Amino acid sequence: MSFTVDVVRRRHVDLSKIQLSLRGPKKVKVGFPSGEADSDNIQKAVWNEFGTRGGASGGGWGGPVPERPFLRNAMRDNKGKYRHGMRASAAKLLTGKTSISVVLAKLGIMAQGDVQESITSLQSPPNSPTTIEIKGSSNPLIDSGEMRGAVTWKVWDGS
């Protein structure tokens, strides 16, 4: 038994359009990209993401700051959503209806919101009673909201 399959293209695909749509930046950075955030917010983010030993090593009001990985949590918890978004954009890229810059910008906006939500919702480990008294709030990652507001994204060409 044998059979034959005919492949009929319904649409002509211009490969030069595809090549053009894939040119440009290759990455999007989310969080506190160099040149986009001030050093105070970067320092707060690092202290909270990785924790500190306290005292002379910095962090908080002299005591250790426990690890509160808001960036890693946001990326891990939303990895499937980002993959789905990239898959959904693949057809538009291949037909030349969008560019990689536009796709990465959309991904950056989405991830920025996820990181900000992670900062807002993280509750563990909780603030110490002393920190709560000083801040007037029990939210571990929000004091003035400045660090949360400084989260941004940047399409990056890799250089």
Rank of each mutant, 00 (worst) to 15 (best):
L122H: 02
D143Q: 06
G108K: 00
V65W: 00
A111H: 05
G58K: 01
P125A: 11
A150S: 13
R148I: 04
D38P: 09
L93R: 01
D77N: 14
T131A: 12
P64G: 06
R72L: 09
T98N: 03
S39Q: 15
V30A: 00
A150Q: 02
G108D: 05
G96P: 03
R9Q: 10
T52N: 05
I42R: 08
P64Y: 07
L93V: 06
N73S: 11
T130F: 15
N48D: 07
L94Y: 04
V155T: 00
K81R: 10
W61A: 15
I109A: 09
T131H: 07
G54Q: 02
R76E: 14
R72Q: 09
K29M: 14
G51Y: 02
F32G: 02
I42Y: 12
Q112T: 15
G60A: 08
G31V: 02
T98K: 01
S2R: 11
V7G: 02
S138H: 07
E117R: 15
S34Y: 03
P126E: 14
M86A: 10
S121C: 12
G149F: 08
K29H: 07
F70S: 06
Q19D: 13
R53A: 12
G85P: 00
R53H: 07
D6F: 03
G51L: 01
P140L: 04
G149E: 07
N73A: 09
Q123G: 13
K154W: 01
D77V: 12
I109H: 11
R83N: 10
H12C: 08
R148H: 06
Y82W: 12
I109W: 06
D143K: 07
G51Q: 02
P66A: 01
I134E: 01
R76S: 15
Q19H: 11
N73R: 12
S57N: 10
I100L: 09
S89P: 03
L94H: 05
G54L: 03
P140W: 02
A111E: 05
R11V: 08
P129M: 10
L22C: 04
Q123K: 15
T120S: 15
V5M: 06
K81P: 03
V151I: 14
D157Y: 05
M1K: 12
A88I: 07
T152N: 03
G58R: 04
S128K: 08
K26G: 11
V155S: 01
A105M: 09
V30S: 01
M1E: 04
R23L: 07
S121M: 14
V28K: 00
L104H: 00
G35P: 06
D77M: 13
L20C: 06
R83Q: 12
G31L: 00
S121V: 15
T95E: 13
G85C: 01
K154F: 03
V103T: 04
V8G: 02
H84V: 13
K92W: 10
K27R: 12
K97M: 05
L22N: 02
G62C: 01
L122Y: 04
P33E: 03
T4N: 11
V115D: 03
R11S: 10
R76W: 14
H84I: 10
W156F: 04
T152A: 00
E133F: 11
V30E: 00
